[in-house]
Amino acid sequence: MRNITFTQIIRETLEAELTRDETIFLMGEDIGVYGGPFGASRGLLEKFGSERIRDTPISEQAITGIAIGAAVAGQRPIIEIMFMDFITLAVDQMVNMAAKLHPIYGQNCPLVLRTTPGAGRGYGATHSQSLERIFCGIPGIKIAAPSNARDGSALLQTAIRDNNPVLFLEHKLLYPMRFEVDDKLPEPTPFGYAKITREGEDLTIIAWSYMSVLALQAAAKLSNDDIEAEVIDLRTLAPLDIDTIIESVKSTGRVMIIEEGPLTGGFAGEIAAQITEQAFEYLDYPVKRLAGDDLPIPSAKSLELNCIPSVATITKAASDLALAD
């Protein structure tokens, strides 16, 4: 076992995959000499050269579209969109080209788009958003949202080996976090399997990406008050492991879904709808969503942390739900 950061395991995974398959290449802004804004590709340029670690101009739509063309022609590109907010500039190519290639034209599009959602660093309204909701309603795009180093590596390997476009979320607060992992990189984990990261019978808490970290911390606090929460880390949003969710809800009868992005129009609403459709009669209390405020993310720390779920607000909301009559 060893203790390493999320950044380190992403870097090692990229290196291992680039070594394994020479059709894989990286493309994005400041990923080469600079090593990526969070250091996830540091050292790769020296090892693999500028043909395979391609620094680009600031042109998100072209980066994405060029990668899609290369993917259809036989390469396996991994592109990086520096902040998830910038993905708005690449949405056309993902939605109108990548997502249509297999169902309409019968073509493979083995593309991974790595990007960094999330607030908490005071970067302000256009460097802090969680925009996965844009893609959750687009059939044809897979979405992975790991919450720890082991899953980060295992899911990234799966994403790279998949023959479809994959949106891969690396929450910016995960990068400096340290995790206990095996000396060897994990085996790839298949998409569509949520992980129950803590068992409990009083309520179910569902989260993904960095919110899964907070959910576990909240669950530990709840346990001090004799409330045992079952925590489900979704790991992938598309495909969604609804079966694991339904099974847990049937046993606890109470469920809260945590989402960092704004409440209105989020993916938590979709999960809530599916739970209501499939397990309404098992619910002791209405489904609860705890999400970001319906506001842009402000910069000042005192404002920013007040806008998104925290261990304190998750603990409070979960406690209220568990104790409600």
Partner: peptide, 29 residues
């Protein structure tokens, strides 16, 4: 929206300008 890579034809996606980076990605390959 038609494509036939076996005859070197990579189609369009119906979005004006949408194929410009796509063609360029094929050239990158």
């Amino acid at each position: 929206m038609m494509m036939a890579p076996e005859m070197g034809f990579y189609g369009s996606n119906g979005i004006t300008g949408g194929s410009i980076p796509f063609a360029t990605g094929i050239a990158l390959d």
